[in-house]
């Protein structure tokens, strides 16, 4: 055997295969691969820093302000921004900076809960539909078409309007119900793009079962676009929550949220524009951070964008 081996290595005599730059240990697993290209993406760095700040704000608002957002002496109502109250005060005399900071938690919560849930539902259904095909696919896809046909804001508007009590969970649930089809479709398309590759056939030829094939071969190669979109979608949901609350069918007082602040500010647009400006800036920044994070992730996780 050894003699033959030598014959091969001499006959083949191939020079070190990869370009010299590529280190032998260079990983190509989904996340390592993505991380390498993310580090060099300025948009990723900007959005990552923003997100870290915003998430900290949502989890530990007391780090950012000593004021109690619920301490609202009417005596200091309707003040313009000042050194003492950076964002001014609202009608009730609450410190507006503190209210905006504390508002992050609810907005983020809705965004993350909805995104994570539709991600899990979408990935599972899309994977099953694409992998098994046939009637499983037909039934699942007709179902997604059905839900897809209802614009999610309209659906949420109708279903939330009939509820008298609306918590973070209620709003999230309704948004989940109306938005999962996007993810199921995206995942299905992504799986269909890899399922006909010969490495899947090779695994089947070796006797691998459906679960092994999905876990080891399909998921790592098809998850990329969906992960990216999930981040973009978190931004969209945060915008949607603000919109629904602004329209009066989202969260309710005494909860603190950006949507509620916008809702309140609309009556005083002329006199107190700062009531509108500050929460709007935060909504915009959050949506921007998630969206550009998502775009960066999508690029990094997409195998097609990789230079070979």
């Amino acid at each position: 055997m050894t003699e033959l081996n030598k014959a091969h290595t001499v006959a083949a005599g191939e020079p070190p295969p990869a370009p010299k730059k590529a280190k032998a240990q260079e990983e190509a697993s989904l996340w390592m691969d993505a991380w390498r290209s993310l580090r060099r993406n300025p948009w990723f760095v900007v959005s990552a820093v923003l997100l870290v700040v915003l998430v900290t704000m949502a989890l530990f608002p007391q780090l950012f302000t000593d004021n109690d957002p619920r301490a609202c002496p009417l005596s200091r109502s309707r003040q313009e921004p000042s050194a003492e109250h950076w964002f001014g005060t609202d009608i009730q005399g609450c410190d507006y900076y503190a209210r905006v900071i504390y508002g992050a938690a609810n907005s983020m919560a809705v965004g993350v809960i909805v995104s994570l849930s539709v991600f899990v539902i979408g990935v599972a259904l899309g994977l099953v539909a694409a992998f098994f095909g046939g009637w499983v696919d037909a039934v699942l896809m007709r179902l997604t078409d059905l839900v897809f046909a209802i614009p999610y804001l309209l659906g949420a508007l109708v279903f939330l309007a009939v509820q008298s009590e609306r918590s973070v969970w209620d709003v999230s649930l309704i948004l989940i119900v109306f938005t999962w089809p996007t993810f199921a479709r995206l995942m299905r398309g992504s799986v269909l793009a890899v399922i006909n590759n010969d490495y899947i056939t090779a695994a089947r030829a070796l006797g691998a079962g459906p679960l092994t094939i999905m876990r080891r071969h399909i998921l790592p190669n098809s998850l990329g676009p969906v992960v990216g979109y999930a981040a973009v979608f978190t931004g969209i949901v945060i915008g949607a929550e603000a919109t629904l609350t602004f329209l009066g069918v989202g969260l309710q007082l005494p909860a603190i949220s950006w949507g509620l602040q916008l809702d309140e500010a609309k009556s005083y647009l002329q006199q107190l524009p700062h009531l509108l400006t500050f929460p709007l800036i935060f909504v915009a920044l959050t949506v921007f951070a998630f969206t550009s994070m998502g775009e960066a992730l999508r690029d990094a996780l997409d195998p097609k964008s990789k230079k070979r």
Binding site: E14, P17, P19
Partner: peptide
């Protein structure tokens, strides 16, 4: 009679004659 080795990458050309390796 196979030619041994592989064609070089265009961005990492060998010195001299490109076929010499």
């Amino acid at each position: 009679n196979a030619i041994s080795g592989l064609p070089p990458s265009l961005t990492d050309m060998p010195s001299g004659c490109p076929f010499h390796p």
